[in-house]
Design a protein around this nucleic acid. Structure first.
Lengths: 180, 180
DNA sequence: ACCTGAACACCGTTCAAGT
DNA sequence: ACCTGAACACCGTTCAAGT
């Protein structure tokens, strides 16, 4: 990639990170482009869809999450491992309002640029789920698909909390409830 | 209200009910107006904001829910009463995708046309919550605010399920988890 | 190779003009 | 009283024209 192109790409990502964080994941792409001092068409050449932009923003967190999943599976007891994964999931999804909805939509849509990343995420969670179920820490009538949606709902509620303590409390309550 | 005005109002409500159900609560108001055979400006004269339209659509379900809450409080044991209220809440919120988010936003915004209805709803749930807590059916470190958001999250996840059985299953799991 | 302005079809809001 | 077309400032998509 040419140096100026790389430069533009980086500035778009930075601007998107800021704008999505404050305005939510449905913020205007025109605003992102303005903030990055780039034409809207340039933004769309680098990231042909909103999901492509989200994917680039979430990739770091996602792959860290997948790697953590592998570590957790060998290092910790199954219940604690799943719990940690869930907390990481929520943290990932908390980067911007509305990103959870984008994820649950993307996992149903193979065309989405976010699809593969979400499927990977679901798989890494499903692995930990199975082990937790074998250890008796979670009810057995859940599969990876259910876990993905339940984790999404937990993250959604977490994101709705107004104060930091309320958010933390809501998260604790939901995690304890799920991992009864 | 003049007869033709009443007529237009009714057609708008019917069209909104259809469009929101299929396209979600963020669907184009222009589309709703077209479907109702009415100018967009006419729609906005009857319902000056999207929330006003949502409020009109949800009012029936909401007041039924509040009335049910009163009945439940005297008729049933506290745990079952709260459980029934939660199921009704989810059913209300299931009228269209995205309506839960509109509700949790509206309860924070006194300007919203949906605000009062959501506050009433929270109150009716909070009453049942207190009684369930006194009966030991729910943890005591939750208030009406928490319940409103938790119920919202349950409804959100419910709405994400793809098949009817999965949706029902997700709902059962979450209700059992909350009312441990 | 890469960027961009402009055209396009949409959106919600507002208001002067109609009956 | 009530309705509506039109103007406005926005949106995401597309593409011919520029360097």
């Amino acid at each position: 990639m040419r140096a100026d192109a790389r430069d533009n790409r980086d500035r778009v990502l930075e601007a998107a990170s800021d704008v999505f964080a404050t305005e939510g994941a449905n913020a205007s792409l025109r605003l992102v482009a303005r903030e990055a001092d780039v034409g809207l068409a340039t933004l769309l050449r680098h990231f042909p869809s909103r999901d492509a932009l989200l994917e680039a923003l979430l990739r770091t967190g996602f792959s860290r999450l997948a790697a953590r999943g592998d570590e957790l599976r060998v290092a910790q007891d199954p219940r604690a491992a799943l719990l940690t994964w869930l907390r990481d999931f929520v943290e990932c999804a908390d980067t911007s309002r509305g990103v959870v909805a984008a994820m649950t939509a993307a996992i149903e849509d193979p065309q989405s640029a976010l699809h593969a990343a979400c499927v990977e995420m679901r798989t890494s969670g499903a692995d930990l789920l199975v082990r937790a179920q074998e250890a008796g820490a979670v009810r057995r009538d859940l599969d990876g698909n259910d876990l993905f949606l339940l984790a999404g709902g937990i993250a959604w509620t977490y994101g709705q909390g107004r104060t930091t303590p309320q958010r933390a409390h809501l998260l604790d309550v939901q995690l304890e409830a799920l991992l009864s």
